[in-house]
Design a protein around this nucleic acid. Structure first.
Length: 870
RNA sequence: GGGAGUUUAGCUCAGCUGGUUAGAGCGCCUGCCUUACAAGCAGGAGGUCACAGGUUCGAGCCCUGUAACUCCCACCA
């Protein structure tokens, strides 16, 4: 057998292993009627994107679940794909165009520009795919999808048309959020509110009849150019006399009415509100109720229009100019500081402008009904559960979804406007004439759909819908959706109502949410802050396995986590630990078959029993999505149980040529590799390949589960008696600074003589004993010059005369005695409590009794030792 | 204005439906290159589980209240 290097080098291994998996087609899920399907669709990363730690966490969780289920015998399908990311991609290509050619998209025209985007997508679109592969993601690459591929486009068109036919998509004029930088409408979900310091300017609007004035307050004075009214509360006695009058809009000179509307809060400001129907959602509504004129004063790029001398100015430039003029002309009453929430674009973070505009909307109320029911009824579960409240709250208050975007990159809206009769033709096939008047003079809506419109269909469009595919039939609904809590509204909510509406079935059963990966200070990682960590660099340095393990341990579902590079180091060390443990096993192997021997020693039964418990718990933990807990348990077992104890225990046996020890080592190691494989796929597969094995590859081995045949609970406890003794001896030797090289005879007085007699070699090896003599408790031994160590089951003596200080020894034992007497007292108090004994479960009471027994034994051992100490 | 989360060792965090004397990684102290691993081994220090009440035989975990920090939603010009 080839000698493995001392240090594990992930770089050379990971690529080789991944290529092997690909070549063998292990990631490809076959529809097998004998198997149960398990399906995950990937949250499609942006085609413009670079892998960041958030993706890495997301993908790792999914890969763990998929690999686990695959090993459990499911037809486990993980559908990969990416998202066309309308705004982000268009901006990216526009940027390149500007930088390289000094052109805008309008210079090229729609068709040529889109060619450029496709070129760009074809060139760089697979970068994110390559990066996913370095993480070890076992996606079914044969089924890779793109939100703008033919199938997804067909799905989008079908959904648009069908919703339109049902009256659930409509076109109308509403106040929408407009991003002047991205020059497109946004949905409500795409606006992030940021608290910013601002001002409240109080302006004087003189009454037309010269009988006085009203004072209004505003945070956005530039919108006054679009004012077409002033509103007061109908119950506000201060103003009843002016309702119905008009006032003169300063700077503009327009005569505008004063109306009464409940919307106005009498307590706030002056109780008079300027009405700008085109630039404020509330004003828009008030305007409709009172028939106020609509004057649009800010254009798509945030510049002033219909504003006389201010035309062409940027909105902030205009604000300054208007304020200056207002002040000079005596219309500015006062200025107050006011911190207020400003809507910003979630893509570019520019301030969004509320603008009245004709857009397409999805009518949400009817769709929300089923989406609410399916979560309330528990058909879809959120993990952690608290997010179902967040979801339901949003869905219960959801407003219509603005889905049109003034972009070129995306799914163009399948609506044609008749230039003659004005009818809108919406169709699955491109029409050649108006369906109403048959005019050929029709023009297609230039806008595209919100990127999230296509993502909303992902769980079924990625499986082939609207065609009736076998994949759809077999794999839908999917099982788990893994994503960050930050896109519940953008994506999760919309997938749920889309699935219910178009499939009449939930898109997934469980939504597993994780938190954000933050920097060591707890700040959000971002390009602009420069605190981002590139997962690819981490993988190169520490390996994908270490990164994966780092990301999924030490945090729990739905909670944010901080990323420490040092933790990667710790996880790399763990990988190296496994590597070396495996090296040790291999170096000592003369056997070639992996099977448990008939004759098992006590430590064998101990380790197998621990392994059995581990397998049981890991299955339970993963099944309930506690994957961090599962990982931690495997880590502890490998490092503590297997390496620090079992391997050490096996050494004296191996040197005696005990093949049974080899068999148990190989068996346990193999089971560990299986258990760990979903978490650390590369190193486990590499080791599996190097040790004797019967399976084809680890990735398709059976995942370990609880095994009745390995139930050695009693032997596990028996051996822990020996471990207690070893621990006590070690601790005592360390106290006295005895170097490991100095061996000493150990005399064990115990009523468990058989256990200790069978364990002499282990005590010698692990506790620095030159020889071990076992005798009964009541046998007499000279304690002169003996160092005594007490455990509940044994009195252990080492002749180390020169190290013994009688006074100190007394003191030590007395201290230990009083400590344990204290414990026993509290224990006995608990046991003498009627309520405890009668109400606590029997197992708990028995455990407590046993504990008390042990303490009594320990105390009597200590007392006896103290009495003999002369 | 409404809702949620967090508060556990020096730091960052686990702690699964309430059940010993509360754990991990990193850091710290002591001793070891014991032929798998110094990216390691052995031993150790360090916590009144934010605070105040309550329920319970038993509370880090459940209930009530308080405080601090964080986030989400709504949005009053």
């Amino acid at each position: 057998m080839e000698e493995l290097p001392k240090i594990y080098d992930p770089k050379t291994v990971e690529k080789k292993i991944y290529d092997m998996w690909m070549e063998k087609g292990y990631f490809h899920a076959k529809r097998d009627p004998k198997k149960k399907p398990f399906t995950i669709v990937i949250p499609p990363p942006n085609v413009t994107g670079q892998l960041h730690l958030g993706h890495a966490l997301d993908e790792t969780i999914q890969d763990i679940l998929i690999r686990y289920k695959r090993m459990k015998g499911y037809a486990a399908l993980w559908v990969p794909g990416y998202d066309h990311a309308g705004i982000a991609t268009q901006i990216k290509v526009e940027e390149i165009l500007r930088e390289q050619e000094g052109k805008t998209r309008f210079d090229l025209g729609r068709e040529k520009f889109l060619e450029r985007v496709w070129d760009w997508k074809n060139k760089y679109g697979d970068r994110i795919v390559t990066q996913l592969k370095t993480l070890g993601s076992s996606c079914d690459w044969d089924r890779q999808r793109f939100t703008m591929d033919e199938g997804c486009s067909k799905a989008v068109r079908e959904v648009f048309c069908s919703l339109y036919e049902k009256g659930l998509i409509y076109r109308g004029k509403r106040i929408i959020n407009w991003c002047p930088h991205c020059t497109t409408a946004l949905s409500d979900a795409e606006v992030e509110y940021v608290e910013k310091p601002g001002h409240l300017w109080h302006l004087r609007y003189p009454l037309s009849d010269g009988s006085g004035e009203v004072v209004v307050a505003t945070t956005r004075p530039e919108t006054m150019l679009g004012d077409t009214g002033v509103a007061v509360n109908p119950n506000d006695e201060r103003y009843t006399n002016i309702v119905g009058k008009t006032c003169i809009l300063p700077l503009v000179g327009r005569e505008i009415p004063i109306v009464a509307d409940d919307y106005v809060d009498m307590e706030f400001g002056t109780g008079c509100v300027k009405m700008t129907p085109c630039h404020d959602p509330n004003d828009f509504e008030v305007g409709l109720r009172h028939n106020l004129e609509q004057v649009l004063v800010i254009d798509g790029e945030g510049k002033i229009i219909n504003g006389g001398k201010y035309n062409g100015m940027d909105r902030y430039e205009a604000r300054a100019a208007i304020l200056k003029d207002l002040e000079e002309q005596g219309y500015l009453v006062k200025v107050e500081d006011l911190s207020h929430n400003v809507g910003t674009c979630y893509r570019c973070h520019s301030d969004v402008e509320p603008v009245a505009s004709d857009q397409w909307f999805v009518k949400m109320a009817p769709l929300a009904k089923e989406a609410i029911r399916v979560v309330e009824d528990g058909e879809i579960k959120f993990v952690p559960d608290r997010f179902s409240k967040v979801y339901l709250n949003w869905m219960n208050n959801v407003r219509d979804w603005c889905i049109s975007r003034q972009l070129w990159w995306g799914h163009q809206i399948p609506a044609w406007y008749c230039q003659d009769c004005g009818h809108i033709t919406v169709s699955r096939e491109d029409p050649t004439e108006c369906e109403h008047c048959h005019s050929k003079n029709i023009k297609r809506d230039p806008d595209v759909l919100d990127t999230w419109f296509s993502s909303a269909l992902w769980p079924f469009s990625a499986l082939g819908w609207p065609d009736k595919t076998e994949d759809l039939d077999y794999f839908y609904p999917t099982d788990v959706l893994v994503t960050g809590y930050d896109i519940i509204f953008f994506w999760v909510a919309r997938m749920i109502f889309s699935g219910m509406e178009h499939m009449k079935e939930k898109p997934f059963s469980t939504v597993l949410l994780h938190g954000l990966v933050r920097d060591p200070q707890g700040k959000k990682m971002s390009k602009s802050a420069g605190n981002g960590v590139d997962p690819i660099e981490i993988i190169e340095k520490y390996g994908a396995d270490a990164l994966r393990f780092n990301l999924i341990t030490g945090n729990s579902p739905g909670n944010d986590t901080r990323f420490y590079v040092e933790r990667c180091e710790a996880m790399r060390n763990f990988a190296n630990k496994i590597w070396n443990a495996s090296r040790f096993v291999m170096m000592n192997l003369t056997i070639t078959e992996n099977k448990l021997p008939d004759k098992l020693e006590l430590p064998d039964k101990w380790v197998l029993s621990k392994l059995n418990t581990l397998a049981k718990e890991v299955n339970e933990n993963i099944d309930s999505y506690e994957i961090g807990v599962a990982a931690q348990k495997i880590y502890d077992f490998i490092w503590d149980t297997f390496c620090d104890w079992y391997i050490e225990l096996s050494k004296p046996r191996l040197s005696e040529g005990d093949e049974n020890a080899q068999h148990v080592l190989l068996y346990v190691l193999t089971e560990i590799l299986k258990l760990l494989h979903p978490f650390m796929p590369f190193i486990t597969e590499e080791i599996y390949d190097a040790i004797p094995h019967s399976g084809e590859a680890l990735i398709v081995e059976n995942y370990p589960e609880y095994d009745d045949k390995l139930d050695f609970t009693q032997q596990e406890r028996d051996f822990e008696i020996v471990m207690d003794a070893i621990g006590a001896l070690r601790s005592r030797r360390a106290d006295m600074n005895v170097p490991p090289s100095r061996k000493a005879k150990v005399i064990v007085l115990t009523d468990k003589q058989e256990i200790f007699k069978n364990s002499q070699i282990y005590i010698m090896r692990l506790a620095g004993a030159s020889e071990v003599a076992v005798d009964s408790f009541d046998s007499s031994h000279d304690t002169d010059g003996m160092v005594t160590v007490i455990t509940p089951s044994a009195k252990l003596m080492m002749p180390m005369a020169e190290l013994v200080d009688l006074a100190k020894e007394r003191e030590r034992i007395e201290k230990e005695l009083s400590k344990n007497r204290g414990f026993l007292a509290s224990q006995e108090k608990k046991l003498s409590n009627e309520n405890f004994v009668s109400r606590a479960p029997e197992a708990v009471v028995n455990a407590e009794r046993e504990k008390a027994e042990k303490l009594r034994a320990l105390i009597s051992n200590l007392e006896e030792t103290l009495a003999n100490l002369k």
